Amino acid sequence: MLHSVPDIDNSEALTERQQAVLDAALRLLVEEGDNLTMTAVARRASCSKETLYKWFGDRDGLLTATVQWQASKVRVAPVDRKGLDLASLTASLERFASDWLRVISSDTSVALNRVAVGHAGSGKDDLGAIVLQNGRFALARRLKPVLEAGRQAGLLDFDDAETAFRTFFGLVARDVQIRLLLGDRLQLTDATIGGDAARATQQFLALYGPKTRGANNRPQGL
């Protein structure tokens, strides 16, 4: 059974010491994968197992907190709903896209996702569900309000926020994550990530920008 852990959608809920412990857990996942134990984390982080149990509950609780901490590095720039314009919406989407590409291309995320895929349906623990709930689904909860604000401001035109989010997610990710999971040594530099984030954002805006009500209901300017 999962124990409660800090709400790491807001990373400020963690102390610096807790952040250091979760970073240690992430490094161990890279090195040891499925062999992560509370004892190993305590040893690497120079803390007691009692402290880990107090903070995170059991191993699943630690894994949940680790996934949340990794996902918290994908930021969503706040937007002013009243004064939202195309420039600020674009900046928010590009920041989300670039952060997400940096996170999924890191050694820690690749290792974490490989372990999660290996555990899915195995009955070992709920790591696959933990990654979904505190990774992809949590990111959707953060970005959907921005998409809804864009729709309210007349900058986006969509019927369903989940469908719009999935489209944006797909434009950003493309085949990057699956290639990394399968061992492709993609070199994602800051310049590459920035260019990919900007391109995905412009493609998304072309698909979901305000549409004319003329022939074919095509986006304006296309």
Rank of each mutant, 00 (worst) to 15 (best):
I8M: 10
R179G: 01
N216M: 08
G183W: 10
P6M: 03
E31F: 00
K73W: 05
V176Q: 05
A200S: 14
E12F: 01
D157H: 03
V172E: 04
P219N: 08
A65H: 02
S109L: 07
R17S: 06
A65L: 07
R17Y: 04
S4V: 13
A140C: 09
V103E: 15
T64Q: 13
D7C: 01
A71C: 06
S48L: 04
D125M: 07
D190S: 14
N217A: 09
E16M: 07
L52N: 01
V115T: 14
N216C: 09
F204P: 06
C47A: 04
Y208H: 14
H119L: 06
K144T: 12
D190F: 15
A161H: 09
S109M: 13
L112T: 12
S11H: 14
T66C: 03
S46A: 07
D9A: 09
A215W: 14
S48T: 09
T90I: 04
R136L: 11
G57Q: 00
S11G: 05
R95C: 03
A191T: 15
A111N: 07
G128Q: 10
Q68K: 10
G195A: 09
G83H: 13
V146K: 06
A24T: 12
T37N: 13
G61F: 00
A20V: 04
L132S: 03
L147H: 03
T51P: 00
I130C: 01
D99T: 07
A149G: 02
E148L: 08
L101H: 02
V30Y: 02
D175A: 03
R179W: 02
Q152T: 06
R59P: 01
Q70T: 08
R81I: 12
R44T: 09
L180Q: 02
R142A: 02
T163G: 05
V74I: 15
D80L: 07
N216F: 02
V67L: 11
L63I: 10
S122K: 15
I8F: 03
K82V: 13
L22H: 06
Q19F: 03
H3E: 15
K82P: 01
M38Y: 04
N35V: 06
L207F: 05
R218H: 06
Q203F: 01
A120W: 08
M38V: 06
A87K: 13
D125Y: 06
Q220C: 07
T39W: 14
F158W: 08
D175V: 11
T66L: 10
A42T: 05
L62R: 02
T108D: 14
D34F: 00
N217G: 11
V103W: 06
L132N: 11
K54T: 10
E94T: 09
L2K: 11
A97F: 01
Q152Y: 01
S88L: 13
L155P: 05
D126N: 12
R17G: 01
